[in-house]
Design a protein around this nucleic acid. Structure first.
Lengths: 188, 188
DNA sequence: AGTTACATGTAATACGTTACATGATTCT
DNA sequence: AGAATCATGTAACGTATTACATGTAACT
């Protein structure tokens, strides 16, 4: 079951608009970066590969005086392959890697105080991230449409994808924080 | 920030008892596999590397008539490096990859019905996994010690690590299921 | 006798990060 | 003038999966 998720992440980003390699790199630093990302050193070769495979094409655009940038567009073949992937049911990963939880599995290697410090550090980081994500959410309510108004979220809303990943990221961090809080007493 | 988490996963497993490469592979199929794992093709070369680095040594044991297996033990240097890693605060990953959520970000590529099928499929898989994890938890209550009895979980409990990863995996799946249930109405 | 589990390795390939390398444009 | 951002690429290395390869031991 070979997947090449980066391929589909790029095709998906180009589904609605054309982007440069740099733009794609930037997108992975925004909301979707919570669930998928790649460095520019992986993106540029992948873009070339997708062009070679006929799933993308590009035009060269001049920025300012002479800075060339390549604007990529998805082809019909690209849309077809994207749809095929998007439609396929996603199996659960056997392992969702989490180095902090690996350390917790080996908690007996630490003293109670050492474990407590590590645990409270993780709690603080997760809480800070949660605050940050909630702030992002609050700022985007006007874009999403407030609850119980004519602008509420619905399937055809242009920012449904954004809304889903943000609420999911918040749920993930909320759950992490609650689990940490529920179990910190074991280390006190 | 070079990490080599597999190295520490192996050292951690060997902290309390000796294991063969096969045993380590088996451990990654049990509870810790929720948060870290590796295939035998990655484990065997890593074990060799750790021996070369003086963090492990092994003795050859005969199983049955002539089947040789290598039983690995952690060295003092190995314990030292493991502790160093275990003590270091774990930074949050920027990205926690989730291909299903990537598909949800691109939900506008699908029809409402296609999206609903995908979403309900994920909900079912996550619910099944949650049931399975809860069953594991129920079976382990005697090992963990029931709540509000003299056998309740505490820092020195020999299965605290196991308890933590199981409760965390349950929390993760519970949160996933709840998020899916909270948002499925957008696709109906 | 046949199947499953135990047991160990290597080869080829794919995926991902860090470092190397260069230059233009925009903002302060 | 200097810093941050925009812009694109390659090289080296590390991590991880799939496939190849072989053989023993235990269970039914």
């Amino acid at each position: 079951m070979i997947v090449r998720v980066l391929k589909y992440a790029i095709l998906g980003l180009l589904y609605r608009q054309e982007y440069s390699g740099y733009d794609i790199t930037s997108q992975f630093k925004k909301e979707i970066g919570q669930f998928w990302s790649a460095k520019h050193s992986q993106i540029y070769p992948e873009l070339r590969k997708l062009v070679d495979e006929g799933l993308l094409h590009f035009r060269t655009q001049i920025q300012g005086e002479k800075l060339e940038k390549k604007m990529y567009t998805i082809t019909e073949a690209g849309r077809k392959e994207l749809l095929e992937w998007a439609l396929s049911p996603e199996p659960l990963p056997e392992t969702e890697k989490d180095a902090f939880m690996l350390k917790m599995y080996f908690i007996h290697t630490l003293s109670q105080e050492e474990a407590r410090i590590l645990f409270e550090n993780q709690l603080q980081q997760r809480q800070e991230k949660l605050v940050h994500l909630k702030q992002e959410y609050e700022q985007l309510i006007p874009l999403f449409g407030e609850e119980n108004t004519s602008g509420a979220m619905h399937f055809d809303h242009p920012h449904l994808g954004h809304y889903l990943v943000l609420t999911k990221a918040i749920a993930r961090e909320q759950s992490y924080v609650e689990w940490l809080k529920r179990h910190v007493h074991l280390l006190l």
